[in-house]
Design a binder for these strands. Structure first.
Lengths: 242, 242
DNA sequence: TTAACCCTATTTGTCCAACAAGAAGCTGTC
DNA sequence: GACAGCTTCTTGTTGGACAAATAGGGTTAA
């Protein structure tokens, strides 16, 4: 019923910094500022908001963390939009012991993106896409080390997503990269060999070339679930929390 | 070829604050800290990192902006994981004039999530889900005002996504809320009436109840594209940048 | 011994002042 | 008019100060 954006626990009085952030958002909105425009200097912002420079700076740090402004020393702050990149930075913190539920969810998401989107992929894919996929997959055989192989594996799936020519989906896929990498790594360290992955990928590509909808969905689903099978029973990252 | 995470323009020497952020990430990782654990006090962090308190505070602001820590005054900082919520805060800034490409991408994403996921929806949906959907849709008729109606419309689609029982997908859908709302609003201000939307939603629900895969996909796709049709020719939000 | 109370130290939030380094703009000279 | 040099401005960082409120310890009373 409660459709408020943030959680209900807003009993805490908002700090001055939070207030300045809100005022800055309003200021950007009121002045119709957009990407490339310059923000007032810190001193001016101090006068506008009636806050000290430290407070303004902390607020500015938040905007920078959001990827909304870019500050060049001794020059000033300009509005940008690197929010997707910033979102990826957010997930560079391994603060959460990734639960099995999260893994399930991400894996389900991948299935939706890569398996259920057959039609769109078949519609959009070009010979160049297929050549790229084969090239990336070929490198998988020559890649040593679990982490490198996982990166290459992820690269293959990213390239497949790229076929959809949809930046939003690509960004979201990039957002899930850390978790996907762990899923892949876990699969590889268990018993799956690069050879295995390579042949599964090839089979997927073959199905695409043949425009065999059923085969594609079956092979991709099997491939994804093979990497995920190891999470089914055991708690995935118990060894992480020492 | 370049698979670096951030852009190439990292010539700028990292500031001390960025350095402290990185060190905090390492500290969290090394000590195996996880959700619920306490971080050292600001003074201790100053000594650990050899930085001044203001610098440490600015770094802490970044972590707070990321939704990685929660600071309670006079108590300290504890590790949390509100990154998805923080991501939504990020997108509360209307700094970018949303391009038609972005609209296209988001709309395509919605199609993938809501249309292509028929099988999963049909598999998972319960009578309670359907009752909720009908109830939400019924409120659409009694909701006045474009913005309120758009919210209610969005609520309907969110509830449908919730059927998938996948938090990752739900979070991503929430992430796209601002853009989706604008798409819906634009559609409504043109010529679509609440009545229209209501009946389209009802038709979708009926298709679900009948487990009619073809009808569902057709109706949902038509419904989504109807709202989006107005963006096809004209530049969507030229009037926004005054 | 236990419970209640009070006091002190601690911790975060905010502010002020200062300096360094470098960019931008102005000025004077040729 | 063009260029060199200077001044001013702006951000990055540091240190210190105070307020407010909590946590914890010590004291006292039952």
């Amino acid at each position: 019923m409660n459709t408020s954006n943030s959680d209900v626990e807003d009993l805490e009085p908002r700090s001055v910094v939070d207030d300045v952030v809100a005022q800055m958002r309003d200021l950007i909105s009121e002045r119709g500022l957009t990407v490339g425009d310059q923000l007032p200097t810190e001193k001016e912002l101090c006068e506008i908001f009636g806050a000290s420079r430290n407070t303004v700076r902390e607020a500015m740090r938040i905007l920078k963390a959001y990827g909304v402004v870019k500050v060049r020393p001794k020059v000033g702050a300009t509005i940008v939009d690197n929010r997707m990149s910033s979102a990826m930075d957010m997930f560079s913190f391994n603060v959460m012991d990734i639960s099995r539920d999260t893994f399930s969810d991400i894996q389900g998401f991948r299935c939706l993106l890569e398996v259920s989107s057959v039609e769109e992929i078949f519609d959009s894919i070009t010979d160049e896409d297929i050549a790229d996929l084969r090239e990336i997959n070929a490198k998988l055989l020559k890649t040593g080390g679990v982490e490198r192989a996982a990166e290459q594996d992820f690269l293959f799936h990213t390239r497949l997503i790229r076929v959809l020519r949809n930046k939003a989906i690509l960004d979201v896929y990039g957002l899930m990269k850390p978790v996907i990498l762990k899923i892949i790594q876990k699969g590889k360290t268990r018993h799956t060999f690069e050879n295995n992955t390579y042949h599964e990928h090839e089979a997927v590509i073959d199905a695409i070339v043949a425009r065999d909808r059923i085969a594609y969905q079956y092979r991709m689903k099997t491939h994804l679930e093979a990497g995920y099978a190891h999470f089914s029973e055991t708690s995935p990252f118990a060894e992480n929390s020492k």
